[in-house]
Computed example of a mutant assay.
Amino acid sequence: MAVASVAGVGLGWTPLSALARATVQLSVVALLLRGILSVPETVGAFLLLMAATASWTASGRLRDLWHGRRAAVTGVVAGAAVSLTAIFALHLVALQVRFLVAVAGIIIGNAMSAATLAGRNFLRAAGHRRDEVEAWLSLGATPSRANLEIGQEAVRESLLPNLDQTRSTGLVTLPGAFVGALFGGASPAEAAQFQLVVLAGIALAMTICGVVVTRMLGRTPYVVATARD
């Protein structure tokens, strides 16, 4: 806060309030996880809570877009569901409650980020290329076709930061899943294997989420008008 204040960034009390909120939330989650690990049957409800919270957060970011909330919820759920199903169906990670909760939290969180990034990139690109979209529509193209390339660009841009981080894994950063596995007693080789599975799962979830969100947003010509405003 002191550095931001001196630099004139204007964050105010936001860093402190963010840490305070994280403290409260992590305390609650720690209590919930203690109960979940003791009663595995409740894991479904906890996963639903995570998915609902992520969907609500992402939908709030896209509320200014046509059916943005619906697109965000659908994208997050679809991306996370497909990725988690693939990971555990292929037995890449043991189907145990503690592993399921850990992996689901990472996957769902990144799907939420993908929905927000893809949606906002879509809106920005639609504003810059509205004349191109209107030209497509004037030629009789469907809204989906008129917005197709914009959606593809939005998905690509939303994936690049995660792909760059994946490329630098082990050289620039030691990801949380790798460090967590080490702290949990896994060997470096086992931790690396777990991290690779997580990275692949994140990429799959984010790709599916981004595609679903942009395809749903691109179904209406009103996106162009919204972007212009």
Score class of each variant (00 low, 15 high):
S138F: 02
G140W: 15
R21I: 03
L163A: 04
T226V: 13
V101N: 05
V172Q: 05
T166I: 11
F194L: 07
C209Y: 13
V213M: 07
R120L: 11
I108K: 12
R70K: 10
E132S: 13
G127L: 11
G79I: 02
A200F: 14
R120P: 15
L16M: 08
L16T: 09
V101T: 01
G10C: 04
V39L: 10
E149C: 04
G10F: 05
R63L: 06
A102V: 02
M216Y: 04
F122G: 04
G170E: 00
R129S: 05
L33N: 04
A102Q: 03
L95E: 07
W66Y: 12
L48T: 11
T74I: 09
A102K: 01
V24P: 13
T142L: 10
G210D: 01
V9L: 14
Q193R: 14
Q152D: 01
V9R: 08
G184L: 12
L95R: 08
R63T: 11
L199E: 04
A72C: 08
V93K: 04
G105I: 15
G176H: 03
V97G: 01
R98S: 09
I208L: 14
L90D: 00
R21C: 02
V103K: 03
G12W: 14
I208M: 12
I150D: 08
H128S: 08
W56D: 04
E157W: 01
D131G: 00
L160T: 09
V223L: 15
G176R: 00
A45Y: 14
D229F: 06
R130Y: 09
A225G: 04
V73W: 15
S168A: 15
A118I: 11
L217F: 05
I202M: 09
A186G: 03
Q193T: 08
F194I: 03
R124I: 01
T166P: 15
T53C: 07
V76T: 08
Y222G: 03
T53Y: 06
L11S: 02
T23P: 06
N147L: 15
V82Y: 05
L160H: 12
A18H: 04
L33V: 05
W136P: 06
L95P: 02
E41N: 00
V29K: 03
A71G: 15
S83T: 07
D229Y: 07
A80C: 06
I87H: 10
I87T: 07
P143G: 08
M1Y: 09
S27W: 10
L92R: 10
L171V: 10
E132R: 06
V24S: 11
G140Q: 12
T169F: 12
A58W: 03
G127K: 05
V29A: 07
I202V: 12
V39I: 08
V28D: 00
V3K: 08
L11W: 00
L11P: 02
G75C: 15
P188C: 10
G44H: 00
Y222R: 03
A102S: 04
F88W: 01
R167A: 03
T166H: 14
I202D: 11
L31D: 09
A86I: 15
L32C: 11
A51N: 02
R120K: 12
G60W: 10
G180A: 07
L49K: 02
L49E: 01
A191Y: 07
A30H: 06
L90V: 05
A192F: 13
I87N: 09
Y222Q: 02
Q165F: 01
T116D: 14
L32V: 14
T207G: 13
R98K: 11
